[in-house]
Every structure is written in C-alpha cells, then in structure tokens.
C-alpha cells in the first residue's frame, strides 16, 4: 500500500461533546487504502461511531484533517453531494423508509444522481438481485425479516456505486445465521466490486472478515492487526 494515495487519510482528529466534557476522539490518526476492508472495534463510547460519522462526512472534526483520495473533505455545504457521490451507509437498525417498498428504498439515494426514473428503477432491481432479494422488491420493510431488511439496506448503500462503504454494527440486530449471510455478502461485494469497506462492530466474528482490525479505546487507536488475505 506504500506509495499509493490512501482513500482516507485522517490526522489528529478530535471531537468532544457537552462543552468538552465528553471527548469522543482525542487526536486520532488513521489511513485507509483504496479497496481495503477494515473493521473498527472497541467498547461502547470509545468513539467508533463518531469516527464513522466523520469518515462519512456526516460530522466534521473540531481539529485535525481528513482527506479523500488526497483531497480535503468537502465543507459542510457540499457534504451531501460528496456523500451521494462517494459514500454508502449501512446502519445497525437498517433505517429503511417504512412507507416505501424494498425497490423504492434502494432508489432513494439515486435521486441525487443523473439517472432517469426508469434507470433508477432498473438499477434498484439489479441491486436487489445482487443481494438475492429480487423476489421481495415490492414488499415494504415491515414485511421483510431482519436479514432481508439489512440486505435491502446494503443494496441501497450501493445505489450510487460508492467507492467507500461504511457500516455501523451491520449485524447488531441480526441472529447468527443472518449475520453470517450479511458478512458473506460484504465479502462478496468487496471482492467483486473492490469497494473500500469500513465496518464498526462489537462482534469478533464480524471483525474476523476484515483485512485489518483497528481497536479503539478512549477516542484513540490502541492497536491495529492485519489479517492474512
């Protein structure tokens, strides 16, 4: 990875809440290569989700710098466009829109693309096929199992062909069988699409799928372990 521009370069990130009483990040440095699959682990409150929000341009650091493919992260008023173009999110609680069908949920991020309504619909069908849910495309989230909802959420995250996929406890609400299927899907997507993948998790078995495991504590990275490919 040496010599290549990292996909993400974070230096000296700090973030505190409640007037500085709660420090979420304390001068964190992290470099993520393009196409890398990393897991961020650590106890609750160690700053994992705050870091993920910063990597997704949902939140800005109070101090420190963040760059994407060598370019500084965009200012807040351009963050939406940046997310729409480069970032895909997968959340623990799926966060599908309950009034829309599975296919319509997948279409949602594509509203910010130049795709026509028909192209959006076709891509949504293709992505649902990719995650094995083409037969559930017209079903609303309430009619889907937890595992199916998370797969719809993954399809939605891939809608705009992101170069960076961020997942926050993606198996946290799933049973072990569905959790294994979702991680298998992440591995498949990572291998086939080459998407850079950052997963925040508590689960050791989830972290075991990653190429590198970053352990955090008290707003800092305390260890980094590379797994054999």
């Amino acid at each position: 990875m040496m010599g290549q521009t990292p996909r993400i370069e974070a230096q000296g990130l700090t973030r505190s809440y409640d007037g500085g009483r709660i420090a979420a990040l304390r001068g964190l440095d992290l470099s993520i290569a393009a196409g890398e699959f990393i897991a961020i682990v650590g106890p609750s409150g160690c700053g994992k989700s705050t870091l993920l929000a910063m990597l997704g341009a949902l939140e800005a650091p109070q101090t420190g710098t963040l760059s994407f493919d060598g370019e500084p992260f965009p200012p807040p008023h351009r963050a939406s466009a940046f997310r729409a173009e480069h970032i895909g999110f997968v959340f623990q609680s799926f966060h599908l829109l309950p009034t829309l069908s599975a296919a319509e949920n997948v279409e949602v991020p594509m509203f910010e693309s130049t795709r026509s309504s028909r192209q959006r619909r076709e891509r949504a069908r293709m992505l649902l096929h990719l995650v094995g849910l083409d037969h559930r495309s017209n079903d609303r989230p309430s009619m889907l199992s937890g595992g199916e909802r998370q797969r719809v959420a993954i399809a939605r995250a891939l809608a705009n062909q992101p170069t960076l996929l961020l997942a926050d406890e993606p198996t946290g609400s799933l049973d072990s069988v569905n959790a294994a299927r979702v991680m298998q899907l992440f591995e498949q997507l990572h291998a086939e699409l080459g998407t850079t993948l950052v997963v925040v998790t508590h689960a050791a078995e989830v972290a075991g799928h990653a190429q590198r495991v970053v352990r955090m504590q008290d707003g800092r990275i305390i260890t980094e372990v590379e797994h054999a490919a």
């Binding site: 939406s80 729409a84 309950p98 949602v108 991020p109 910010e112």
Partner: peptide, 16 residues
C-alpha cells in the same frame, strides 16, 4: 427525524 436524517445521510441535498 430519523427518516429525514437518513435521507440526508444517503446524500439528499437539503433543498430536496
């Protein structure tokens, strides 16, 4: 609140 935040998180511009 959460649904709207998700729309913003997946890249919807504020004007949308």
């Amino acid at each position: 609140t959460r649904e709207i935040a998700i729309l913003l998180a997946v890249g919807w511009r504020r004007d949308r």
